[in-house]
Write a protein that binds this DNA or RNA. Structure first.
Lengths: 242, 242
DNA sequence: CGAATTTTTGAACCAATTCAAGTTCGGTGG
DNA sequence: CCACCGAACTTGAATTGGTTCAAAAATTCG
C-alpha cells in the first residue's frame, strides 16, 4: 500500500516546510516502504521494543516513558511532519513509547536505511540532524517547565507552544486550532496530577486566557498568556521535511 | 594556539570512543579552529547568544536554562567527548547556556563548517546525529525523573547516571569516580530546592547508598540504588567522537 | 437513551518550599 | 601554625503547592 507518493506529498504544500530538490524527493520516495494508517490510541512504538523510522503524515501523537507502577511522563507531542524513531536507530531498543492521539497516517521508511540516506544525500542527513536538534530544544523547554515553572506557567507554556506549532502549520481557522488532547494528556506532559491540572485550567479559563470547544483551542489574549508563562519562543519559520 | 592535534587526541585513547579512519581524523583536524582553556564557573555559551560548535576535551560542564527571576534548570551534564552547541547551529541564537563546572579544555570548531562536514564526510555527519540522539535520550530520562519520580528516586537516577558515564569513560579509581558538582548543581538538575536536595542526600547516605569524599563519588551498593531508582540503563558501549 | 469517558469540585493530607540559623570545610594570610 | 573568611552543607519550624481519595456533573458515543 503506497497511498501517498512523496512527489505529491500533501505536507509539502504547506509553506513551513522547506522545498527539496527533485532528486531528494525521489530518494525519499525510494526510502519509503509503506503508508500506514493507525487508529487513535494505538501504539506506534512500544517501549523497550525495536522500532522503524517514520514521519508523521497526519494526526497527532506523543512520545512517552513510563515507570513500572504506571506513572507516565509525556516527553513531547508530535505533529504532522515530525520524525518518529530516530533515537531508536541509534539504540538497539526504543527508550520510549509513541502513541497516536488521533487517527494517524505514517510514512514508514526502510529499516537500516538511514545510513544510505546520509551517504547518498548529505543534505538530507543534515535535515535529519536539524529535526533532531529541533526536537531536543522542545524537550529542553519542557524540562524547564516541569522542573522550575509553577502549575499556571506550565500550562500556559504548553498551550502557547501547541498553539504556535499549529499556527505555523497553517491549520488555524478563525484563530482556533485543532486540539485533540484531553486533560490527562496535559497532566502527563507537565508533570502534575489530573486533579491539579483541571483546577489550574479552570483558573486560566476564568482569567479569560484559554478556551477549548469541540476539540478546538482558542487563546483570546495570547500576549497576556505569553507574559504569564514567560514564554516568547518564535515558531520556526521553515523546516525540513523527510 | 593548537595545543592538541586530533591525530594525537588524548580522548581517542579511551576505548569508549569508536575509531575513525585517518581521513576522518584529518578532516576533524582541519575543522578544528583552536584549543581553548576556560576556568571553572565560566560561561562557555551565553543564553540567547550565538555560539560556536565545540567538543568538551576535558573537565565537566552543564547546559541550563533560566527564567527571568533566577530560577534555573540544569538540562544535562557534559563530560569529555560531548558535543556542545549543535542546537545553536540550527537556531540563530542559543536557546540555553553552557557553564564550566571545573576548569575545562574545549576543541573549538569552524563556525558554519558543519555543512561541509556532512557533505565531505557523511560518516561524520551520521556521528553528529548519533551524538544528538544520545543527548536527547539523556534529557528524556531527566524529564521522566523531574516529572514523575520522587525526590529519592531522582537523586538515585542522577547519581547512577553520572557514575556509569564516568565508569564508561574509564576514569574510575578503586570504584570511585570524580564528582566535581555540589548540592546546588544537583538541586538545579533534578528540579528540587537546595534544602530538600540536602535532606534527601542525607537520607541516601544514611541508607549507605552513596558517599562523596574529597570530590570523589562512591556507590557502595549500586544494585540497591538501581532498584530504588528504577533505573537500569546500560552505559553506551562505544560512541563516536568528533 | 444509557453507558462510558471526561471534566469538575470538595476535603484531608503530605511532599516539598521557604525562611532562618548553625555547622563544617577549604583556603589564605598574618 | 592557627585564626579567620567565605562557600558549602546541615538542621529546625512554619507554610504552601500539589496529591489523593471520593463523588458528582457534564459530555461523548454506540
Amino acid at each position: 500500500m503506497k497511498a501517498v507518493s512523496c512527489q505529491d506529498c500533501g505536507l509539502r504544500k504547506f509553506e513551513v516546510f522547506r522545498a527539496n530538490t527533485k532528486e531528494e524527493v525521489d530518494f525519499i520516495q525510494a526510502f519509503k516502504r509503506k503508508h500506514v494508517h493507525l487508529a487513535a490510541g494505538k501504539l506506534i512504538v512500544r517501549e523497550a521494543d525495536s522500532a522503524d523510522l517514520y514521519t508523521l503524515y497526519s494526526g497527532w501523537a506523543f512520545r512517552f516513558k513510563t515507570l513500572s507502577d504506571g506513572r507516565r511522563q509525556i516527553l513531547n507531542f508530535l505533529l504532522p511532519g515530525d520524525l518518529i524513531g530516530l533515537q531508536d536507530q541509534v539504540a538497539e531498543v526504543s527508550p520510549h513509547g509513541v502513541e497516536a492521539v488521533t487517527d494517524v497516517e505514517l510514512c514508514q521508511f526502510a529499516r537500516d536505511g538511514l545510513w544510505d540516506l546520509f551517504r547518498n544525500f548529505p543534505s538530507l542527513g543534515y535535515d535529519v540532524t536539524w529535526l533532531a536538534s529541533q526536537e531536543e530544544r522542545m524537550i529542553d523547554e519542557n524540562l524547564l517547565s516541569v522542573g522550575r515553572r509553577t502549575a499556571l506557567e506550565r500550562i500556559g507554556v504548553l498551550l502557547m507552544h501547541l498553539y504556535k506549532r499549529s499556527i505555523a502549520l497553517g491549520v488555524a481557522v478563525d484563530g482556533r486550532v485543532p486540539f485533540p488532547i484531553n486533560q490527562q494528556h496535559i497532566a502527563d506532559a507537565i508533570g502534575l496530577s489530573l486533579v491539579h491540572t483541571n483546577r489550574t485550567l479552570r483558573r486560566l479559563y476564568k482569567l479569560g486566557l484559554y478556551e477549548v470547544r469541540e476539540g478546538w483551542l482558542a487563546l483570546p489574549r495570547p500576549g497576556a498568556l505569553e507574559r504569564l508563562a514567560e514564554y516568547f519562543e518564535t515558531p520556526v519559520r521553515r523546516r525540513p521535511l523527510i
